Amino acid sequence: MAGSVNAHIRPLRPGDKQAWEKLWRAYLEFYKTSLPAEVYETTFNRLLGDDDRDFHCLIAEVAGTPVGLVHYLFHRHCWRIENVCYLQDLYADQSVRGQGIGRQLIEAVYAAADAAGAPNVYWLTQEDNHTARQLYDRVGANSNFIKYQRPA
């Protein structure tokens, strides 16, 4: 990939709180949402937890600076014996967009899923998120499912 940068992908650490929050706030702003401070605190603590039900987080660093993140979790599935992996949040800072950070984070989740014996990794995106979908079409397969949820 032209213009790609090789990021260091690593697990979230307690000292990452400020950088993680900056990246996650930018991700949420992209989706035109914000959350109460309590959700940030609870989510960060869950990401650092050792409960198998908790989320996991990987950070992408370039030159020692966090520039991207991915949140994922493993869960049971009625159609499989093995757990599956849900990639919930993926974000690369605007300064590194188009340089392969998103792909590297997805591939790191694929590796984590393989290591955990989870044969399937899936995620959702908005239909009009054309930039991200260009990447997703290269690293995944569109399942053709439409998401519904309980009205607020």
Rank of each mutant, 00 (worst) to 15 (best):
N45T: 00
F44I: 05
G98A: 09
P11A: 11
A116Q: 12
A108F: 12
W79E: 12
I101A: 03
V84T: 10
G68F: 04
S95E: 14
D51E: 10
Q134E: 14
G64V: 09
R46L: 05
I106Q: 03
R103C: 10
A19D: 12
I59Y: 01
E107C: 10
G15Y: 05
Y27Q: 11
N142W: 12
L87M: 11
L28K: 06
D137C: 08
T131H: 09
R76F: 14
D50M: 03
K147P: 01
L12D: 13
D54C: 12
E82Q: 15
L69P: 02
N120I: 14
A108H: 08
Y136T: 13
G100A: 11
F145P: 00
Y122F: 15
K17D: 03
Y72G: 05
N129Y: 02
H8L: 10
F145T: 06
R138F: 03
I59F: 01
A60Y: 03
Y72A: 04
K22C: 03
R10T: 07
D51I: 02
E41K: 13
Y27P: 07
R76K: 10
I101R: 05
L58T: 01
R97N: 06
E107P: 03
Y136Q: 08
R80M: 13
R13Q: 07
A37F: 05
N129V: 09
A19E: 10
L23H: 01
C78S: 11
Y72K: 01
G49L: 02
V121W: 06
N45V: 04
I59S: 00
G15P: 02
W123H: 11
L58R: 04
E82Y: 05
L28V: 00
I106W: 08
E107R: 15
H130N: 13
S95G: 11
G64S: 02
S4R: 02
R25Q: 13
G140E: 10
N129A: 06
R103G: 05
D51N: 12
W24H: 09
E61Q: 04
Q126C: 00
D128M: 12
L48D: 03
P119L: 04
Y136P: 05
